[in-house]
């Protein structure tokens, strides 16, 4: 922990390429999702990845999670290359990914059971995480008895239960209504402030990205997305103690990212032969 790990970034992405191939009408089709993505995430950093839909954000997260192998390039975690899922990382899924036949408590215990942690300890740790997300009273319920927001709290508690160094979040609030999303963004920031994990946060929501992140990686439009720019967000923390949206740094970061996204969209729309200059903003945000 003293020497090399200090100057090495927690997560290093090195020239990640990923193609998807499928068969259509007997012919091999192929599309390039990632066309050489490279960036670093520092330890304890909250880093978001944003980009137009279809740009391969989720693919990138899956590569870092070890769920999808990259065609070429490397993912280094703490300087070591990874190819498989590992205990150092935990994923929070967009569609929650809870097991409907398990109770809330057993869902949170699931990763601990896989790690062969004794049952009483697993229960204690799972309950602790359910306390953190405010769902201790719902431990005996089944996921489908809970609202979407509550289900994702369970998903978050499950990811936190293994105490991973890295939290990988794939549009975690994308399937949750707007009011609940606002509450959960703040909760996430509080939890992150306490636990200090390295977070890779995928989102298509510009405001969400600026609100929660230290840095925002903007991917270019697919196919073959690359890192277009990395935008730092110099907003003081804790961010729930003041009106973040009125802060000049917020407005500045938001405007910068919006202009980057708009470039992408314009290129794409005119490239597709439609009316140039007419662009749609990514959902979940309003015009600057």
């Amino acid at each position: 922990m003293i020497d090399s790990s200090l100057d090495v970034a927690k997560i290093q992405l090195r020239d990640i390429h990923k193609d998807f191939t499928w068969k259509s009408k007997g012919r091999q089709q192929s599309t390039r999702a990632l066309g050489g993505v490279s960036f670093d995430i520092q330890a304890n950093e909250f880093c978001s990845v944003i980009g137009p839909s279809g740009c391969g954000k989720t693919t990138l997260l899956r590569v870092v999670a070890g769920l999808t192998p990259a065609d070429s390039g490397q993912v280094l975690i703490g300087g070591r290359e990874i190819r498989e899922p590992g205990d150092d990382r935990a994923v929070v899924f967009q569609q929650f990914g809870l097991f409907p036949w398990k109770t809330v408590l057993d869902n949170v215990k699931f990763p601990l059971t896989i790690q062969h942690i004794p049952d009483h300890e697993a229960t204690a740790r799972a309950m602790e995480q359910l306390e953190t997300v405010g769902l201790a009273d719902f431990a005996g319920r089944h996921p489908q008895q809970l609202s979407g927001g509550m289900q994702q709290r369970v998903g978050l508690a499950r990811a936190l239960a293994v105490n991973p160094e890295i939290l990988l979040m794939d549009e975690p609030f994308g399937a949750i209504d707007a009011q609940t999303r606002t509450v959960m963004q703040e909760e996430l920031m509080r939890i992150w402030a306490q636990s200090k994990k390295t977070v890779l946060f995928i989102t298509h929501d510009l405001d969400e990205a600026v609100l929660v992140s230290d840095r925002i990686v903007v991917l270019s439009a697919g196919p073959g997305s690359v890192v277009q720019e990395i935008v730092p967000v110099d907003l003081p923390r804790p961010r729930w103690e003041y009106d973040v949206r009125a802060h000049p740094a917020y407005i500045e970061a938001r405007a910068r990212i919006w202009s980057l996204l708009k470039q992408n969209l314009t290129v794409r729309v005119s490239g597709a032969g439609s009316v140039p200059g007419r662009s749609t903003e990514p959902s979940g945000s309003s015009a600057p």
Binding site: A65, G66, L67, P85, G86, D87, R89, A90, V91, F93, Q95, G97, F99, F110, P111, I114, Q115, R158, V162
Partner: peptide
């Protein structure tokens, strides 16, 4: 997706 979840947690 549930198979993916299990894989991500080390199954």
């Amino acid at each position: 997706n549930l198979v993916e979840v299990a894989r991500s947690f080390g199954v």
